[in-house]
Every structure is written in structure tokens, then in C-alpha cells.
Amino acid sequence: MALNTSTIISIVFLAAMPFLGGILMGVDRRLTARMQNRMGPPLIQPFYDVLKLWAKEPYIANNIQPLMAFMYLGFAMLAASFVAFQLDLLLMLFTTALADICLIVAAFSAKSPYSYIGGRREFLVMLSYEPVLLLVEIAISLVTGTFIIKGIRAYETPLLLLLPAAYVVMQVVLVVEMKKSPFDVSGSAHAHQELVRGVYTEFSGYTMALVEVGHWVKVVTMLAIVGLFWAPNPFIGTALALALFVGAILIDNVYPRLSWQRMLKTTWTIGFGLVIVNLLALSFGGVI
């Protein structure tokens, strides 16, 4: 691989992803606080949290758990690199699933009832957003004829104009991915403590720091995919992604948590329904 400009940009983007994610989480906490009429923590609060966690006394549940926590971050980064280097979108989705499995195995391996139930719910979360995201990606490639992000970006018409419903569906996916209410059954940082910390319960110190950064990377990756909806102009694309980001925070603050059954029903009906209608419309319009 020759070290040309675009490769350097890709590497820089990949390296910047965790930091972007951290800042975004800071923005999230700040915005949430403002919506609740509070001041909120500093913008770089997430970095303080992670650094603090990293330096804490290492408490682990067993010898597999730390490795799995690291693999969660690792595969999240690998999935992110598919976006950064503009490679295969479908493979990115499968890699994200792999990262999730690592997280769940880490949670399960502790044999703690709380993290175990959190992990089970994490599976249900995967079950509710994965097929929908897969469908959105397939819709994108049906329009553009390729799964490779470089090819999708080269498509001339902005995807938002052709797939507006898929964009709306991405809002749902993003809420699930960010573990926000109403879809935060598996574990959250908020006052819902019936499962203590859900899937995160048994992480502590540096394992928690790894998982936290992994989560940031996943959110940024998802936002980058939203950005594809207006690929010809990256600024509009970024704006679209940020709009969904703010939308997710708004939804988080407005809606109470749903049970997993209703989460599944909601994501599947909205997700499948909207994308199918959109595809049929495009088909009748002769676009695909």
C-alpha cells in the first residue's frame, strides 16, 4: 500500500475516532444537562473518566474477561477501520457484531447474575437493531450497486434524496447503538439501576476504560455511516450525522425505557416498514 494522501487521511481519521467519540460523549452529557436545566460536566469529562478508570487498581472477574474487553475495543476499531479506509460496509456490520459478542462473553464469563442478565439483554438489543441496519445497508447498496464505501461515496445523487426513510430508520439504530432510552435495557449510566450496570457490571478499572472507548468508537462508526447519506458534500453529511446525534439525545430525554419486547417490535416495524416502503417507491420510480 503506497502511502499517498488518502491513506494518510484514513489513518489520521482512524486514529482520531476514539477522540471524536470522547468529545461527542462529552457533548452528549453537556446537552443532556442543558435539556434538564443543569450545567453539566466539562466537555472533556469522558476523558477524565477513562483516564481515572485506567489508573485504578486492577480488579478482574477472571483471566478471560480483560482479554475480551480488549478484543471488544479491538474489533470496534477494526470495524471503524473499514469505514476509515472506505472498504466493505457489510463486513463492517459483521465485525461490529463480533465486537458485541466479545463484550457479552466478557460479561457472561464473570458469572454474575447482573452482568449475565445485562448480557442477555445485549443480545436482544443486537437482535433488534442488527437486521434493521443490515437492511439499510442493503438498501444503500441496491441504489449504488456496491457495498464498498468508496463506491458509495462516488455515487452522484445524495442518498438522502433517494432513501429518506432509511435515514429516519438510522435514527432508531443510532438510539439503540448509543444505548439511549427508550432502548437502553442492557445497561446505562443513568439512574436505571435495577441491573446495577447491566452488561457493564463486572468491569472495573482498566477493563471498563477499554469497554468505554470501544463504545465511543462504535458510535462514531455509526455516525460515519449516517454521513454517507450526503456523500458528495462531506459537510452536509456531517451535519446530517450530527442531526441524528442530537435527535438521539432528545429522544433519550423525552422517552421512558421500553421493555425488550416493545423495543423489538418498535425497531422492526419502523425499520422494516419504512425501508421496504422506500425501496418499493424507488422501484416504481424506476431508480432501481
Partner: peptide, 21 residues
Amino acid sequence: TPKFDLERFGIVNIGDPKQAD
């Protein structure tokens, strides 16, 4: 609560001893 807003100082009520300071 918002009136006193402990989160200003980065304080979070975590509920999990393994992550608490």
C-alpha cells in the same frame, strides 16, 4: 438534581462498587 447538579464536578451515581471511587 438540577438545582445542585453534582454532575458539574463529574460526579455520577454509579451504583456499582467495582466502578465507584
